[in-house]
Each structure stands twice: as structure tokens, then as C-alpha cells.
Write a protein that binds this DNA or RNA. Structure first.
Lengths: 237, 237
DNA sequence: CCGTTTTCTTGACTTGTGTCAATGAGACTG
DNA sequence: CAGTCTCATTGACACAAGTCAAGAAAACGG
């Protein structure tokens, strides 16, 4: 549970350009050389490690290269609230650009590799590279939409709907990354799922059981096999 | 209930620079002249008018100059879900930058004035003006944080907490705009509030009544007078 | 390897909040 | 002004999901 301090790990990042970040990049050719200046460090986190903590000074955003992270804030009354799960190919830290202080924790859920992108450099490079600027705004826009999506998910819905939507969403995100198996691995705990979906941990457990009883999924520990995707999607409606 | 089409209203926007947008602007002097090129139109909406609808092509973002808007999407199962209320001084439309299509509706809650900021121009100007670029990223970052805040609000909390937090948040936003009265005007319906907070309209009604019985607020139609702010904040915890 | 701790599951019970239904209060219209 | 609509309030009731509690199953650590 150690916070990774920047600068400690100084191994240069070779294969860490925009293209490999799974960003909606439109960069080509020489521009990549410039981009590589932006990416400074690539380093590893173990499950439970903090990438940053609430209140930490903001130095830049992070591209998740492998593994997964959760971001969670602390509500006014002191409870944890998970605000998102971030798979590889996604970006974390965009919520800190404004105030220059991280408003939430980012914690690795499993062994995870991230690339650090100093935001100042990114901005400077964006001024020279129109395409990069476009990418940057798109990435931020996408993050805004992602959160809106979660908001929609949390509106007045049943526990079953939330769990179903959660599974479908996770499946689709993994599918986009080329993972076509029907079995998805939950890297997060039941606690995290419940917290994220606004449900008690027991409810999460019961819903998994209920879906299993209906023959829609198969749950074994952190492995969830989707047996009837169409039915699952119907429940998600 | 008419959608305002761009281009129909072509009156140039005089007092619509960044400074007046209540943005965290750091622009000075001549740069403003460039900025004024970015702002194209300023126009009025009546209560119920759509600024844009889900699926509309994205032409730019909008700065709310007066009044208030709600943004709401349609969930997979066809229900409306309010994702935010936007007071004057705030920006709407940032969630469309990525896909170039508006993922939600933006509807005026009262008579509202907005400025249209073509995003392409904004981006082009940002490449020349480092400060503008900084502002743009900050604004987007702030929007991301705003939504995270709503997420935290919707996590496992009671109806009373949600209503209390909603009122405190609204009060503080109005206060930042220099409105120091203890009476706030809800420009949105109970329906919208309930939808936004994930509560049934009846529950909203009952919670208002309950807070009134406790002597914490005074409700008369859309006017909410806060009698005991400290107690309200305690309930919000 | 066994003891300890954490995480997950399952059951019994309670309660907050949604649903249904009826009524009241304004706002708008002809 | 009565008639129609929409919006808000209030009450009665049911049920989904939270809480409490106990036990099972992994994970961890020496």
C-alpha cells in the first residue's frame, strides 16, 4: 500500500507513445517523435498501491498500460465512494487538471503498468500539434461522457439492473480490447462493486447468485462467465 | 418546445468574451480580441426550449449567460435521467466533443441566455493562446470533477442526505455568483430534482416537508428559504 | 503447515422508499 | 368563469434492499 512517487522510477518509456495508449489518435509520422518527449515514465504498481492520493499535487495524467485501477473519493461523511474503474487503454487523473490537486485516490486493483504524461508538456505539445490537441480534448470529453453514463446507471434502478449493466459494460470494454472470451475477470472486490453501484455488498452477492440461478451467468470467485448475453442485456434495460 | 437552430439567430455577441463567461480566465489585453472571434452568437431560450437534443450534430459548446439549463439523457430502458443542472457562468456541451454528436438533451429551465462557442475555432485559437488552452482544459477538468461529485452524492445515501446535499450545493453555487440571500429559487420541477437525485417525486415532496417540520427550511412552491444552514449541512454529511 | 485475517455467502429481520391512488393548487384556455 | 392540465402534496401499502449476524471459503503470514 505504498504511494508511488514520481521520479523514483526513471526508466524511460519506449513503447509508450500515443498510438499504444489506445487513444483515438490521429497522429502520424514525425509527430510521434514529439509525442515521445511528452511521455516520461512508465512504471509498475502492485495490487493495492496508490498511484496518487487525495490531496496529492497534480503533475500529470496517467495512461493505464496494463491491469486496472479504481478511483475513489471520500464523501463528506467520510465514506469511500468508488467513482470509476479504469482498464488498460484508459486515462486517469483528468479531474485534477483544474485545481492541480488530485480530488480522489487512484488505486491499483491488480498488477498494473502506467505511463506518466506531464500535463504541462502535453499542453505545450498540443499547441504545436493540432491533432494532439484534438485528441486531448476528445479524451477529456470522453471521460465526461463516461461519468454521465455512470450517472444514468445509478438513477432509479433496481439492484439487478445495476449489476447487469455493470457486467455488460465491463464485457464490452474488454471486448473492445480484443478479449473475446465469454469469461470476464473481476479485478475488483465485491465491496468495490457495491460501493461503485451504490449497493450493499450482500446485495451484490445475492444478485450474482440470482443471475446464476437463472442460468445467465456462472460465477466462480472473480471469474464471471456470461452464458446468455442477450438475456443479460434485457435485464440491463 | 422548439430546438434552437444555429444560424437562425445571427446577432453578434458583444459582451460575450471569456471574461464575462465566468471562466477561470487568465487572458489579458490583446488576446481578448482574438477571443471575441471565437464567440459567435448569443441568443435567448424560453423555459422548455431545447438548446440541443440527443443525436444533434455537435457544433460547439455553450456558455450559460443567464438562467439555467438541465441536461438529461435517455437510459437504455427509455427513461429520462437528469445528469446535471447548469447555472449561468457554466458550460454545457463538453460531452459531445469526442463523438461530435450530443449524447443528451439540454433544456432551458427558465428564460435563459447562452453564448455559442464553436469548438473548432476554440481549438484553433487555443493553439495560439497558451492561456486559453489552459482555460479550456481546466474547464473540461472541472466538468469531470462536477460529475464525480454527483456520483459521490448518489452513492449509498438516504433521501434526506441527498436532498440536503442538493440544497447546500445549489446554495453554494448561487453564493459564488454573489447571490447572498437565504432564499434560493428552484428553477427545476420536483420531477427533475427527483430524477437527478434518483428519488421518486413523492419522496422529494416528503423530504421537503420533513425539513420544514424540523424548522431547517421553509418551502413555498419553488422558493426555498434556508433557516438553519448549519443543521442542513449536518444532515448532508 | 496451521492459525489468523479478510472476503464472500447466506439467512432472518427491518425499514426506507417506491408504487398506487386520491386530492389540492395553480396555470392556461376558450 | 368553468373546464382542463400540469404539478405538487399526502396517505396507505408493499417490497426491494439495507442491516445484523453467523458461517464458509480464500488469502495471508510466519
Amino acid at each position: 500500500m505504498t504511494t508511488v512517487r514520481l521520479g523514483k522510477i526513471k526508466n524511460a518509456c519506449q513503447n509508450c507513445g500515443v498510438r499504444q495508449l489506445c487513444l483515438p489518435t490521429s497522429l502520424d509520422g514525425n509527430e510521434f517523435n514529439l509525442m515521445d518527449e511528452v511521455v516520461t515514465h512508465r512504471f509498475k504498481l502492485q495490487a493495492g498501491d496508490h498511484l496518487y492520493k487525495t490531496g496529492d499535487e497534480f503533475h500529470g495524467i496517467y495512461a493505464v498500460k496494463s491491469g486496472a485501477l479504481k478511483t475513489s473519493g471520500v464523501t463528506i461523511d467520510g465514506r469511500e465512494q468508488v467513482t470509476g474503474f479504469h482498464l488498460y487503454g484508459e486515462i486517469v487523473g483528468l479531474d485534477a487538471v483544474d485545481e492541480k490537486i488530485h480530488p480522489c485516490d487512484a488505486i491499483a486493483l491488480t498488477d498494473t503498468e502506467v505511463c506518466h504524461l506531464p500535463f504541462k508538456k502535453l499542453r505545450e505539445a498540443s499547441a504545436k500539434l493540432p491533432n494532439l490537441l484534438e485528441d486531448l480534448t476528445k479524451i477529456m470529453s470522453r471521460e465526461i461522457r463516461r461519468e454521465e453514463h455512470v450517472l444514468m446507471l445509478l438513477g432509479t434502478t433496481t439492484a439487478e439492473q445495476r449489476i447487469a449493466r455493470f457486467l455488460v459494460n465491463l464485457y464490452e470494454r474488454l471486448q473492445k480490447r480484443g478479449e473475446l472470451e465469454n469469461t470476464i475477470t473481476l479485478f475488483m472486490s465485491r465491496q468495490d462493486i457495491g460501493n461503485y453501484l451504490g449497493l450493499a455488498i450482500e446485495t451484490v452477492s445475492r444478485q450474482f447468485k440470482s443471475l446464476r440461478d437463472k442460468g445467465i451467468i456462472n460465477v466462480d470467485k472473480k471469474k464471471v462467465e456470461i452464458l446468455a448475453m442477450e438475456e443479460l442485456k434485457t435485464l440491463a434495460l
